[in-house]
């Protein structure tokens, strides 16, 4: 055995070339990734991309139809809808990721510990999860936001807290299965610590349903942001967000229904993008699905 020749044969692909392979294999996934990147790009570069200020009011041009000057028309205070949509992207995307991020941050470790340790830890955690799940989500979110103070960040942290028991329950259920797997026992025999077992063996094999759930929750979070902003708990006027725009347009639905199209469409497209990406991610992370 010549070690050199042996090492040559066992060369791992670089991350870059793996990514290239993925793009070629999963056309739908890479298209969604592109859409998401465009949305994020717009969010980041909003001040440069938007034709007008999102908050500048012009009472001479209220609820105007789309025109050359205002591609998507103006809203009830004469603000340019396109500019508000572009500026709103950053708030909405931030809101969705914040909520789901918080949900993961709380839900994953809690669910893992409950499932892996079992016993009274599991009993206590499961009791709390069940209690939280028995409340209507929006009521809970309103209550938590009320306690923490209004504002987009607080509102979305509340939504994240409300989401977290869903995540915890999912991962707990998978962990109960995965912790019994032989490869976990095998790692134990080599002296693996609980942390290693959780990080290297249990989490990667238990996380799959959570990834799918997250993409659904991202879409739900976009709508939750709309609801909370509608109730005045989220984005504060005059700052725009898609949810807030939708909520405001709702009030003028009778006079000018087309006001709802733009934010509604953006929420839908973004939600769909999240879903497609989630499915692609799930497949990409599952070695047994390679080549499908």
């Amino acid at each position: 055995m010549t070690t050199h020749a042996l090492d040559m044969a066992v060369k791992e692909d670089s991350l870059f070339s793996k990514f290239g392979q993925w793009c070629r294999r999963d056309k739908r996934g890479s298209a969604s990734l592109l859409v998401l990147l465009v949305i994020i790009g717009i969010a980041v570069f909003a001040p440069w991309v938007a034709p007008y200020s999102p908050t500048e009011q012009d009472y001479s041009k209220m609820l105007m139809e789309p025109s050359a000057a205002h591609w998507l028309g103006t809203d009830d205070l004469g603000r340019d809808v396109l500019s508000r949509l572009i500026h709103g992207a950053s708030k909405s995307v931030y809101a969705a990721f914040l909520a789901v991020g918080i949900a993961l941050l709380i839900g994953v470790p809690v669910g893992l510990l409950a499932g892996f340790l079992g016993g009274w830890v599991d009993v206590c955690i499961s009791r709390v999860i069940d209690t939280l799940l028995s409340f209507p989500a929006i009521v809970l979110a309103v209550a938590v936001t009320g306690a923490m103070g209004i504002g987009l960040t607080n509102a979305m942290v509340s939504v994240g807290i409300v989401f977290s028991p869903h995540i915890a329950r999912l991962i707990r259920a998978r962990t109960l299965v995965v912790r019994e797997e032989l490869y976990v026992d095998a790692a134990r025999c080599f002296g693996a610590s609980t942390t290693r077992l959780l990080v290297r063996h249990v989490t990667p094999n238990a996380i799959q349903p959570v990834i799918v759930q997250c993409t659904l929750l991202l879409a739900v979070a976009l709508l939750a942001e709309a609801s909370l902003s509608f109730l005045g708990l989220g984005v504060q006027p005059p700052e725009p967000s898609w949810g807030q725009m939708l909520a405001r347009a709702y009030m003028y639905m009778e006079i000018s229904p087309e006001q709802m199209y733009a934010p509604g469409l953006m929420i839908m497209v973004t939600a769909l993008t999240f879903n497609t990406l989630g499915e692609s991610l799930r497949v990409a992370l599952d070695p047994t699905m390679k080549g499908l």
């Binding site: 032989l182 490869y183 026992d185 095998a186 080599f190 290297r200 094999n205």
Partner: peptide, 26 residues
């Protein structure tokens, strides 16, 4: 210990190399 089910004893998400180096990492 070597188990009866050789498949279940290997983490499906790790490459063979990752599985093989893990005991030494631990």
């Amino acid at each position: 210990i070597i188990f009866q089910d050789p498949h279940a004893a290997l983490n499906p998400r790790m490459t063979i190399l990752q599985s093989l180096v893990e005991p030494m990492e631990i």
